[in-house]
Simulated assay, not measured.
Amino acid sequence: MDLMCVARNICLFGIGSSLCVARDAYLKFLRLDKACVLNDDWHSQLLQARNMRPEDVGLFISYSGQTEELIKCAEAVKKSGAKMILITRFAASALSDLADYNLYVAANESLFRNGAMSSRISQLNMIDILYTAYANTDYERSMARLCATHIEKPNYKNAKEVKRYAGTE
């Protein structure tokens, strides 16, 4: 947690279902005004990795730990001198060997999978744990940021109000 707190940027990396988890992390840390970067395509992720500095941290999400594109990004992060945190399954892998810190998730899922369901849920849970721990490092500031970044939603009191709000009345 200390590493994430002092990092200039948290750079997020993921492909496929793990990219969805990285996006969830991005939105959470954005609410707390923590500088973070997420790129949706692999080429942009590789460029981001090559532009990282030692005061940044790379947060990688890969259930298999063997995704070729992420391995290339991880090698670039290591070359930059930045630290690397990996969220992955409990098994030796190319990415776990490169990572400075491995956060293992409990999921019993084949590497040949249809929907990455249990792995994605366990990865999202780990993101929630990191986010909560980060927010608790400076609770007062975090609460102030959450209030400042809250987006009001309409208060639907009845069906008539819903129709009026939707413009279908």
Rank of each mutant, 00 (worst) to 15 (best):
S80A: 06
L111D: 03
M117V: 01
T137G: 08
L70Q: 02
D40H: 14
I121Y: 12
A166R: 05
E55I: 09
S118R: 02
D128S: 06
L30V: 06
N136F: 11
V37L: 15
N39Y: 13
M84Y: 12
S80P: 15
I15F: 01
D41F: 14
M84D: 06
M4P: 02
A166E: 07
A159F: 10
K160D: 06
E109H: 06
L98G: 03
K72P: 01
A7I: 11
A92G: 12
A49P: 06
M1L: 13
Y139R: 15
N108W: 05
R141H: 10
H150M: 10
M126S: 01
E140L: 03
R89E: 12
S17F: 03
F90Y: 08
V162G: 08
L59N: 10
E161I: 04
V105R: 02
K78D: 11
C20V: 11
L70G: 05
D33E: 12
E69R: 01
N9C: 14
I121A: 06
W42A: 03
L59Y: 07
L95N: 00
V57T: 09
E161S: 11
L19N: 08
A91Q: 05
Y165H: 09
K34R: 14
L98E: 06
N125P: 00
S93E: 11
Q66T: 10
K163C: 04
P154G: 02
F112K: 08
A82M: 13
T88K: 07
G167P: 06
D33Y: 00
A116D: 00
R113G: 01
Y26F: 15
V21Y: 04
S80I: 13
S80R: 13
L3P: 12
A99D: 02
L59P: 05
L95Y: 06
L95P: 05
E69A: 09
R8Y: 14
N155M: 00
S62P: 13
A135Y: 03
F112A: 10
Y101K: 13
I121C: 10
V37R: 10
R113S: 04
V77N: 14
Q48P: 07
I71R: 01
A49T: 14
S17G: 11
V77L: 09
C20M: 13
M143R: 02
V57C: 11
T168E: 03
